[in-house]
Amino acid sequence: MSERRSWNELRDAALASPEAREAYDAARIRFELGRAVRERRDAPGMTQAQLAHATGMQQPAVARFEAGGTMPTLPLLERFAVALGMRLHVGFEPLDRAG
């Protein structure tokens, strides 16, 4: 009989592959960026439709982005920032501090 492994062990084994790690990191970035825009849109009570109008996008594209479904370009992030009355800040942090 084979030994059972926990979810964390299975996940760690799967992420040992460089390709899987790269895909996981890309998904994490998409999710974090989408969450950041959604939180900043929600704070003043702005709808996805209003944000879409302010950025020249369609509402489904905003929804997809906020759900982590697309990897944005820097110009798109700048459009979101301007529409939200903010300034885009891009930076680097040490890996030991990264979430």
Rank of each mutant, 00 (worst) to 15 (best):
G69I: 07
A63T: 12
T70R: 07
G34E: 11
S6D: 05
E78Y: 04
L95S: 10
A14Y: 04
A67G: 09
L15N: 04
Q48E: 06
V82Y: 05
Y24S: 13
G91C: 13
A26K: 11
L51D: 00
S6G: 05
Q50D: 15
L10G: 15
R41L: 12
T70D: 02
R97Y: 05
A20I: 03
T47F: 09
A16C: 11
R30P: 05
R21P: 00
D12P: 01
F65I: 06
R87T: 14
A36G: 13
R64Y: 10
A54L: 10
D96T: 03
R30C: 04
R5D: 10
D25C: 12
R41W: 08
P75V: 04
R11P: 03
Q59P: 08
W7Q: 10
N8S: 15
R79S: 08
T55R: 03
D12L: 09
A23I: 11
M86V: 06
R64V: 07
L76W: 00
M71H: 09
A27T: 05
R30A: 01
M46W: 02
F31Q: 00
E19R: 12
S2V: 10
P60R: 10
M46E: 06
A23L: 03
L51P: 01
R35N: 08
D96A: 11
P18C: 10
T55A: 05
L95R: 14
R41G: 04
Q58G: 01
F80V: 05
G56C: 05
Q48D: 02
L77M: 15
H53P: 01
M71P: 00
V62W: 00
E32Q: 10
A49N: 08
L74C: 15
A26T: 13
R21Q: 15
R30V: 02
R28L: 14
Y24N: 06
A54N: 05
A16G: 14
E3P: 02
L76D: 01
R28P: 01
E32P: 03
Q48F: 03
G68R: 00
E78W: 05
M86N: 10
A49L: 12
R40S: 13
Q48P: 01
E22S: 09
G99T: 14
A36Q: 09
A49K: 11
E39Y: 03
F92Y: 07
Q48S: 11
S2Y: 12
G56N: 12
Q48G: 10
P18Y: 00
D96M: 09
A52P: 02
L51W: 02
R21W: 06
